[in-house]
Design a protein around this nucleic acid. Structure first.
Length: 609
RNA sequence: GCCCUUGUAGCUCAGUCGGUAGAGCACAACCAUGGUAAGGUUGGGGUCAUCGGUUCGAUUCCGAUCGAGGGCUCCA
């Protein structure tokens, strides 16, 4: 294994390292394409920001300031740390500059002139010296500011709307992203064509904040984290646990239906196992220090695969036994640097919805296709329709026979094709142990999340000498595929909370129905209704508190409970309920039996409400 | 890990230019309460993250530690 540069995503089928940053919405992307000049607007505004910063700090050293998704940034080396209030001042100066109707003037200059011009700007000098010899060196000037720049820019600041940008945050960033370099101060901003576009984007950011799973997790009493007891470790409260158990039940049922078997394996294993699997060689920086038990080192598992392989090897497997589809909700622990921990989305302990498919070469294409179809079915149940595939192929320095890589990659391609999925090929982007498909799903507000992953593994079957007896009487090496659909239950839960903004579909909602009597005299009827619904396996509560009905409705609304059953004397007399949905719809005097059938239907079809 | 910001009641936050703190929600008790998003009164609740320094006195000022939030990929 030595000599192979490990990739951090080794078997990281939970995608615990997956990006969780919002990307822009489809509409924005379309708009971007239509207006290629949005990038030049952003880039121009970043130059103007640099000018404003230089007005404040003439001794500032400027680094780079590109246009990025939704905006721009510029990195500076400044005499003091920026305060959030500084951003307002900088914005004011920028607006003044924009109103000055300054031209952006391009000039092509020689390297010598460039070096002289930027002699007091060490970062620029470094960049100039690294430019290829034949590259044209250009500078752009507006007003009092000149920057080394490839362009393009708008022709004049009058093409910019002073109300169409906003400085958002200050962040530390290493020069050239390398932590060995100096830490610079980065100012992020967002910029658009018009003030209206800016408002739209700011509203979108507000929506993102409103949906933050950490905030909703508290408000809806779903989960908590206890840094004093260990960072990145999730505590599921009763309501969160209800949701998890509903998801797990569904997950198990679908797996059995799709020909999987379930496994349960231990949480720790002796060091020889992790040496053999290679994890101690290439994954140890993500593993916790061993426990010493009876003079033996045991490691907490960061992955489930070695355990599944041990089960595989408890018998001589025939081609007649294959394919094996073994799934486990396996809880693993991985070290993540403290700075990257983030709510449920990036944690140190999590439960993967892991599975390993072990099959013959003949079966591989069907198996992959089956996994894809299965994933799509699962995503469909959660009403995620916009799914994209990313196919990562063989990188440099990988392990495994060429023929196997080819067959594997080919089978991945064919499977994607047959499922009519939109896909992108990431040439050489696979892990060293095999090619893979990642699936990204788009949420309700247009963000993409990498969730499912299907990965070939040519490494562990070799290391563990996995075999099967083929029909010609010879022992052969099976294919092994790791796959996870949700990735981890924790992360999936976080994404679900944000996707639904806490208003879970009825089938997932921890409390599906709240019975609200209009007065204490109706408490008995409310209590009986509750029992009646409970017997039908509906998750129901009755609010028999001293609060007035209005307050009870408010509380139920805030808890985003899908159905409220408001009952008074009329309802009691008729054996009926008045239904109010959290969306404000109303249906009075529905027979209780009718409501039960109605909600069961909603649960069955997995409707939002 | 590194940079910036930040840590006050269960939650959301105010406040103390240094004299050991306050609101709303939540919680408890009592009263009130019959129709679609907050009824009222009273009350309990805080070593102001931790440790150290300065000071007659520190929650407040200084330092360290621990935690949290935003970043650390976008190449002139």
């Amino acid at each position: 294994m030595s000599g192979i540069k490990p990739r951090l995503d080794k078997f990281d089928i939970s995608d615990n390292t997956g990006q969780h940053q919002p990307t822009c919405s489809l509409e924005e992307k379309m708009a971007d394409r239509q207006n290629g000049d949005l990038a030049s607007i952003r880039h121009s505004i970043s130059h103007i920001m640099a000018e404003a910063v230089l007005q404040m700090f003439p001794e500032a050293k400027i680094a780079i300031g590109p246009a990025i998704e939704n905006g721009f940034y510029y990195d500076f080396d400044l005499p003091r740390a920026l305060k959030p209030e500084d951003l307002t001042d900088i914005e004011e100066k920028m607006k003044e500059i924009i109103k000055g109707n300054h031209d952006f003037v391009k000039k092509v200059i020689s390297k010598e002139v460039a070096l002289k011009l930027f002699k007091s700007q060490p970062f620029k000098v470094e960049l100039i010296n690294e430019l290829p010899e034949n590259e044209e060196i250009s500078i752009y000037t507006q007003n009092s500011f000149t920057d080394l720049c490839r362009g393009p820019h708008v022709a004049n600041t009058n093409e910019l709307d002073p109300g169409s940008f906003k400085l958002l945050s200050i962040a530390g960033a290493y020069w050239r992203g390398d932590e060995k370099n100096k830490m610079l101060q980065r100012i992020y901003g967002t910029a658009w064509k018009t003030a209206k576009d800016l408002r739209t984007h700011l509203n979108w950011l507000a929506e993102v904040e409103k949906r933050d799973h950490r905030k909703l997790g508290k408000e809806l009493d779903l989960f908590s984290l206890h840094e004093e007891a260990g960072a990145g470790l999730v505590y599921w409260h009763p309501k969160g646990a209800r949701i998890r158990s509903t998801i797990e039940d569904f997950w198990r049922k679908e797996h059995f239906r799709d020909g999987y078997e379930l496994l349960y394996t231990p949480h720790i294993g002796k060091s020889w196992l992790w040496e053999k699997s290679g994890h101690l060689g290439f994954y140890s920086e993500n593993m916790y220090a061993p426990l010493n038990i009876d003079d033996q080192d045991y490691y907490i598992k960061p992955m489930n695969c070695p355990f599944h392989i041990l089960i595989y090897k408890t018998a001589i497997r025939s081609y007649r036994d294959l394919p094996l589809r073994w799934a486990e909700l396996g809880t693993v622990y991985r070290y993540e640097r403290s700075g990257v921990l983030h709510g449920l989305l990036r944690v140190r302990g999590f439960t993967q919805d892991d599975a390993h498919i072990i099959c013959t070469p003949d079966q591989i294409e069907d198996e992959i296709r089956n996994v894809l179809r299965f994933s799509l079915k699962i995503w469909d149940a959660f009403k995620f329709k916009d799914i994209k595939a990313y196919l990562a192929t063989r990188p440099e320095g990988s392990v495994g026979e060429e023929a196997r890589w080819e067959q594997a990659t080919e089978s991945l391609k064919k499977a994607i094709g047959k499922e009519n999925l939109e896909y992108t090929i990431d040439e050489g982007g696979g892990a060293f142990y095999g090619p893979k498909i990642d699936l990204k799903v788009r949420d309700a507000i247009g963000r993409e999340w990498q969730m499912s992953t299907i990965q070939f593994d040519f490494n562990e079957p070799e290391r563990f000498d996995m075999k099967f007896m083929d029909n010609d009487g010879t022992e052969k090496r099976p294919y092994m595929v790791h796959r996870a659909l949700f990735g981890s239950l924790e992360r999936f839960f976080g994404v679900l909370i944000e996707n639904y903004a806490g208003a879970f579909p009825v089938w997932i909602a921890p409390v599906q129905v709240m019975v609200i009597p209009v007065a204490h005299t109706l408490d008995e009827y409310a209590g009986n209704l509750r029992k009646q619904l409970l017997e039908q396996e509906i998750r129901v509560e009755a609010d028999l508190s001293d609060n007035r009905m209005n307050a009870k409705i408010r509380t139920a609304q805030q808890q985003k409970i899908p159905y409220m059953l408001i009952v008074g004397e009329k309802e009691e007399k008729e054996g009926a309920v008045s239904v109010r949905t959290r969306t404000g719809e109303q249906k009075n005097m529905m027979k209780t039996e009718e409501f039960i059938e109605f909600i069961k239907g909603k649960i069955e079809t997995k409707d939002l409400i």
